[in-house]
Amino acid sequence: MAVRTLINGAPIEVVPALDRGLAYGDGLFESIRFVGAVAPLWSRHMQRLALSCERLRLPVPDPAQLWREALDVSRGMTQSVVRITLTRGIGERGYALPLLPQPTRIVAAFAPPQLSEEVYSNGVRVRLCDIRLAEQPLLAGMKHLNRLEQVLARAEWNDPAIAEGLLCDSHDRVISATMANLFALVDGVLLTPAVDRCGVAGVARAEVLATCPLAQVDTLTLDAVLEASEVFLSSSVRGILPVHSLGERVYATGAVTRQLQQHWHNLGFSMEQGG
């Protein structure tokens, strides 16, 4: 897999062994979908990154510099995913914060995931994961570097026909998929789980909530999801993915899902290849 990388603006691919991102997962990341030199959700990514930096007491990077580097690494690619990783940088051994942190800034461009038109038309199969997300309000919502819960969840299956896993918290409340947020149309109301105690406040989720002002953020049980008339996943990289089935429950792709897919298309994303 060819990857173009800049580390602190230099075309290198080596991070110091004492970087706190490697040692402690002390940092954040954003995965941003580009169409040529355009990133329709860039401002939302920068907003989340800035707010998360403040919460983690990290210096906020210059968005203009990040934009220049993102364009540099994705130059010539008609479709790409630019990952921006920000760590607290090199520090002495121990958990104490460095007095004068010098963050490490990694900007890399990847080819987008290849998803067919059929996936966007008919939806994906989803399974219920055994692992439960731990509650930590101080970290909830952020795209921090510790993704071990998601790694272990994804290790629960190897069936290529299953595209995603549904994650619940320790109280069996539905939170998200492993790589996407979840929406369900229940009794005519579009619902998405709260992510103030665990989970990620996705950029695509924020776009859906802004587009559908009547949508509600609320507790969502597994029974409610199983009884929903429509279920879809939102991802800044993959867009709006209908859920075809959750276990034995089969869903039809409904009007709300189709309207949001059209909104994604109107933003500038294609309906295939992760749009």
Rank of each mutant, 00 (worst) to 15 (best):
I106P: 03
A215M: 06
R249L: 11
M77Q: 15
R105C: 14
L138I: 03
T78Y: 03
V243L: 07
E92A: 12
A177C: 15
L138P: 02
V189M: 06
V231L: 06
T257H: 11
A155K: 07
D62Q: 12
L49F: 03
V60L: 11
V186E: 01
D218G: 00
P113V: 06
S176A: 11
V231T: 10
N122M: 03
A10H: 11
N122K: 10
Y24I: 10
L267S: 10
G268R: 12
S229M: 02
A204E: 00
A37E: 15
P98N: 08
L6H: 02
E149K: 03
G94T: 13
L145S: 09
Q216H: 04
L6W: 06
V195T: 14
H244Q: 12
R4G: 01
G123Y: 07
G9I: 06
R154C: 14
P103L: 12
D62V: 07
G123H: 07
A184C: 09
V124I: 13
D172H: 11
L56A: 08
T5F: 01
N122V: 01
V256K: 06
T104C: 08
C198A: 06
V195L: 05
Q47A: 15
R147F: 08
I90H: 02
L166Q: 08
G9P: 12
F269H: 09
D130Q: 15
A194D: 04
D187N: 14
A23L: 15
G123S: 07
L71A: 03
S229E: 15
N181K: 05
L233N: 04
E164R: 07
G202E: 04
H144Y: 12
E13I: 04
R55Q: 11
V126C: 13
W67Q: 14
E230F: 08
E30Y: 05
L28G: 04
R44A: 15
L115Y: 14
G76V: 05
D218Y: 00
E164S: 02
R75W: 00
R249P: 00
D19K: 03
R55P: 02
N158T: 03
M77L: 15
A37P: 02
A155N: 13
V73Q: 04
D187M: 07
S52C: 10
H263K: 08
A64T: 05
V225S: 07
R127Y: 04
E117W: 10
P61S: 11
L28R: 11
A23C: 01
F34A: 11
A50I: 14
R75I: 02
E13P: 02
E207M: 09
L185W: 05
F29E: 00
N266I: 00
V231H: 01
T85R: 05
